[in-house]
Design a protein around this nucleic acid. Structure first.
Lengths: 294, 294
DNA sequence: CGCATTTGCGTACGGTGTACTCGCATGCCT
DNA sequence: AGGCATGCGAGTACACCGTACGCAAATGCG
């Protein structure tokens, strides 16, 4: 009769090879083996050692003996990635103010404090959200020959991201844009866009920041605009009312003729148009600058 | 012997004329008169009526009989103005996060809930702060002939305000800029700057918003910069460290040559330079636009 | 004298982020 | 076989927030 620990090793190996136990899963613990196979704990330890020897498993004190190999994505388990994704969903749909740790945990079906095993705190969570959001920017692998076209692509891409994530504009200033890994990737792409020009790296960076600043500044208005919509359009009335009482006194003083004319014409905010207008002006100005450098 | 209520009226009138009781002060109440002059309450009421008849006082139910006339500034008393000013001071010095109603009240030496007699809530307080801050913008009465010069003045003035109040950039998008009375005043000035051009009011508004958006976007970075300084410079190190570990992996991949070169050159953020650069480019672009319209 | 009204302010509530702690399961050492 | 340090999940508790509510005192008035 073969040594009983060899039988245990064989059983477990079979389970691994059958895919019953996948990489990252916990093999039966020593205590569990004693119960399952009816052996002493020494035997169980010996089996563990043999498995480890074969490279099939690795032992992690405090957690268990785990099947070796690249850990596959495990959808149902809590992870930093999954938390961030859920947080982004909440922020997108209900606004940043609604993103609380409790609500986030409830949405994930876990206890509040469990989040803190994967994320240091709310601020760091937001930084992670920013990075993931920026990471969604898709830049064409083939860089356009024209720097202006490249810049326009980036700006439009950023604008799209800001629209998809209304909270992003106001949260981004929490951190230096470069801090997030995906921000660095974006920066590099923009810097490279100017490769055909005489601009120094510092100058390119200035250009990039000027552009991003404008887009981000405009994006900061998105959240408010959306919040206004969320609040049952009441804000629109309320705004009108406030404006009315506010303006009444000033118009009486007769010093607001142009502003009055503007509102009479039914001027309306359209963020997309504002974006297009500002982008065109900024790119025009940058063109003058780049041309002067060449 | 004269009617005793006439004596009381005389006494009180003397106090008022002597400046002992100033406009807005409360004249002795009916109860107080009965105690002070030893008369019946009917007499006291009669005295009050006589004073009111003379136009010296006005009666305000629930508060008292008050000396008539324009109410002078009363430094030591709580007022919406004083609250807003104190709030701005706190936000300037310690950041918006430190601005709590409790702390604000403590700084003013009053109970927390006393604030709510003068301010509906924190949000409205912030709106008031924004308005006061914007109200500090000093525009020359004599408008420059050149629209570009005018725009530059406004932009620099706004930038100065944003620097003086680091919280302003992030808070302003809470509301439409026009909501605050002083914002309207500013808008009107900018609109008027283009009087010599062919721009429609809507176009002028677009120009203004584009400019303000850029300035505000850049201003959003001020708060973080200041916060970094506040946190004992640790953030600077921490940032470097994060950047190091972050970049290490990416540089290894060999895809960040330009960014690497930038940091090697010791590129440093200088918000003022960024402002100047962006402003110049934006104004250049706007010039092309305005010229094309003429 | 009773009344409604104004004012100042204390208490309390429902919410937040998160520090702390406890129980449990683990691999390892003696 | 038993004791150990370790890792993990989760519950409890704390400090703090904005502010609704209500009470007590003072007032002019009928």
């Amino acid at each position: 009769m073969e040594a009983s620990y060899r039988r245990i090793v064989g059983d477990i190996r079979r389970r691994i090879e059958a895919g019953e136990l996948r990489p990252g899963d916990r093999v039966p613990s020593a205590r569990a083996i004693t119960r399952e196979w009816g052996v002493a704990i020494a035997t169980a330890t010996k089996a563990h050692a043999a498995l480890r020897e074969e490279g099939l498993t690795i032992a992690r004190p405090g957690v268990g003996t785990v099947v070796a190999g690249p850990v596959p994505r495990r959808e149902h388990e809590l992870s930093r990635e999954r938390i961030i994704k859920a947080a982004i969903t909440i922020a997108d749909e209900h606004g940043m103010a609604e993103l609380t740790m409790r609500r986030l945990a409830a949405g994930l079906g876990v206890a509040t404090m469990s989040l803190y095993r994967h994320v240091p705190g709310r601020d760091e969570l937001i930084i992670g959200m920013i990075d993931v959001a920026i990471g969604a920017v898709r830049l064409p692998a083939r860089r356009p020959r024209d720097w202006r076209a490249g810049l326009e692509i980036v700006a439009r891409e950023e604008w799209a991201i800001f629209q998809r994530h209304p909270w992003l504009g106001r949260s981004m200033s929490l951190t230096r844009p470069q801090m997030a890994p995906n921000g660095v990737r974006l920066s590099e792409w923009v810097l490279a866009t100017f490769d055909g020009t005489a601009l120094t790296m510092a100058e390119r960076m200035y250009v990039q920041i000027a552009l991003l600043t404008f887009v981000r500044g405009l994006a900061a208005a998105i959240e408010f605009e959306q919040e206004a919509v969320r609040e049952t359009g009441l804000t629109s009335d309320q705004w009108l009312e406030t404006q009315e009482t506010t303006l009444a006194g000033m118009i009486e003083a007769g010093t607001l003729t142009r502003f009055e004319q503007l509102t009479a014409d039914g001027f309306d905010f359209d963020l997309d148009q504002l974006f297009e207008f500002g982008l065109a002006r900024l790119l025009d100005g940058l063109t003058l600058f780049v041309d002067a450098r060449s």
